[in-house]
Design a binder for these strands. Structure first.
Lengths: 133, 133
DNA sequence: TAAAAATACTCCATAGGTATTTTAT
DNA sequence: ATAAAATACCTATGGAGTATTTTTA
């Protein structure tokens, strides 16, 4: 299942219309129609009743909605969580990989161990290493 | 973000190896490598440190893991929720659409209203309608 | 040097678009 | 008659594979 499909599903419930949902998400109407069909096929159920008055959730659709909302919210949460790396309190060092391995790592590890021993470091202070090659 | 990527991510954390993850998911190793890169690019962070000893989560990876597990669990939940339609307690009527609209619906609505009035129907009893065209 | 990950390429499935037809009020 | 959804068709992106190279313990 794709989150993109759930986003489309959510928008249709809000707009009660494929065309309007397509507009809002800047897709073609035909695409929204097709993508909805993909989701309905995958879940093997109709999610909306179609009428000119609008698209309305079926029972299955009602069941899906809260799940979909939750998943999309969590996705947003992930994205914001992943950004925390560049917030204040973070120290970034750019050094050659070899230097890191042969020298810096030991020093840093020792330093951090000392700080920890003396309770000078918050519990959630962590190291991470990203190679830049 | 795609759930497929999160599933791959999860499997890598469990196997600590791209090749092993690829085997388990029956993908090619190169594909797993590429897909992981897609996820890392999308989240703009390294999720694993690579070494011959294995793939180990970075700080960012650790942050992602619980989210990923939750999302995948919820996906499974959706699938099982959507299946409930064919369980005991469900009554399905197959009738021509026209018949439903011109006659059956009124009768059923009346019947259900009566049952509700006399508390003979559980709170979560629902109707839904799926056109078969 | 030997496993494992990364890269280069190829192929094809499908997401997405345009134009049109069908449906329902 | 009209507005919206569905369908037919086309294109291009990117997911997945094979073969190869690069990495690191």
């Amino acid at each position: 299942m794709e989150l993109a499909l759930l986003r489309i599903f959510k928008t249709i419930t809000e707009e009660r219309s494929l065309s309007a949902a397509a507009d809002r998400l800047t897709y073609a109407q035909s695409n929204i129609s097709a993508r909805l069909k993909v989701l309905e096929t995958e879940l093997d159920c109709r999610l909306f009743t179609r009428s000119k008055r609008g698209m309305f959730l079926t029972e299955s659709g009602e069941k899906l909605l809260p799940h979909a909302l939750e998943m999309l919210e969590r996705e947003a949460e992930i994205r914001s969580d992943m950004k925390r790396e560049d917030l204040p309190g973070h120290v970034k060092l750019g050094v050659p990989d070899t230097f890191l391995r042969t020298y810096l790592k030991q020093v840093l590890d020792q330093w951090i161990a000392d700080l920890r021993k003396n309770r000078l470091l918050s519990r959630n202070c962590r190291q991470s290493h990203r190679s830049c090659d």
